[in-house]
Nucleic acid binder design. Sequence first.
DNA 1: CGCTTAGTTGAAGCGAATCAAAACTAGTGG
DNA 2: CCACTAGTTTTGATTCGCTTCAACTAAGCG
Lengths: 237, 237
Amino acid sequence: MDDPKLSFCQTCAIRHSSLCGALSSDEIHNLNKIAQRKSLRAGQTYALEGDTANSFANVTDGVAKLMHVASDGRSQIVGLLFPSDFIGQPRASENRQKVPHTIEAVTDLELCLFPRAQFEDVLEAFPHLERTLLGRTMDELQIAREWMVLLGRKTAEERVASFLLHVKTKMENAVCKGTEGFELPMGRVDIADYLGLTYETVSRQISRLKREGILEMEGGKKVIRVDEARLREIAQF
Amino acid sequence: MDDPKLSFCQTCAIRHSSLCGALSSDEIHNLNKIAQRKSLRAGQTYALEGDTANSFANVTDGVAKLMHVASDGRSQIVGLLFPSDFIGQPRASENRQKVPHTIEAVTDLELCLFPRAQFEDVLEAFPHLERTLLGRTMDELQIAREWMVLLGRKTAEERVASFLLHVKTKMENAVCKGTEGFELPMGRVDIADYLGLTYETVSRQISRLKREGILEMEGGKKVIRVDEARLREIAQF
DNA sequence: CGCTTAGTTGAAGCGAATCAAAACTAGTGG
DNA sequence: CCACTAGTTTTGATTCGCTTCAACTAAGCG
């Protein structure tokens, strides 16, 4: 009953919002046995593009980024991972078993790691876990495609507005409600790499939103207030 | 033995390269019962963004595009579907059961349709089918993220080079081998919408590649010869 | 408190978009 | 077979939004 390992998962902050939510209290034991915690400081690398992928993970706290860095230094963030998001590509085709994008901690990060082979056994044993993972992957694909629209066709102003709305939603899911305002998990450089812009352009657009009274901030990260309606207009949602 | 329905799937051009490849000759019967063919002429719409998604499909012949069209007319293609690609998001979360992107036939198109509920039953019955679908979805996600890098950071020249390589691979998979050269399945406007450029810019870049001897074409669509090595250099793969 | 890093702001340059027109293609019917 | 038309592609001239380069300011930290 008071098995320490069982309570390890049971007290987990993302027990029900993550992939693990698909498993019952009994079933979760199977993951519990193979899970191990890992902490990274902001800026540390979890995996490098091209490495062999030998584990999967849940983000339990903090924010991570998936990114591609070209040889000439240009870099593009292709996804942000918030608490309860899953890391890794089980079942991807043979030639895609390598880590497809570098994964780095944006803030201090807490992960719950699963060794590859053992996690795949659990997936095999619980088809409803695999089904849930399929659903999450479908959702991720849609998010990626929506971001393609942003990167391909939106103006700098629209991109920054979209970003603020996107992060607001994500951060409100993660943090306790009620608090008007939220913290940007990343600096101007990362925002720029996520939006396909330069950090100067991002800074200018943020300044502009502040000047027009749509956005109020305290320092570079803390958002005090946003006019969500006007932001939505600008972002073209 | 010579059941006409069975031979319907057995003679299918994409029997083994599509999702159906996960099913044995016995199992395929279950899909056979619910499958129905559908033909579309180039330019016809299969589904509109926001519609209720009540069927899934395999592309059996031709090319389709997934796209988003904004209210002001800007449009972005977020994915191309070639023969043996799967259409639809089974298991996507509740609020994502709507068609996420408009689907249109780029060339004349042949589809193999599966009604939603019945296909989900088959998925439930054959976990290895669901597993295969998961793998394909993981692959699609990676392709989408790679395209995000293109849309966010690549120059017009790099985008066009990447596009030519991408289509070359896809078309060679679909068409009988041996033939040096291939046909572009789409016009300049669609290419531009796929690459986040204008059609004038696409045309200029293609002209440039021809002028530099990297590309030889006959008319606007037929590619006679490409210098794949130099294209790869330009595209930054 | 000085030092380093992150963010802001300004001026100039450039790549792609826009505007405009000509050349080519494909389809139609005389 | 050729003339005619509608649509597509190419090419040119100009404009514009974002990038680049540069200087400055604010914030975080030993």
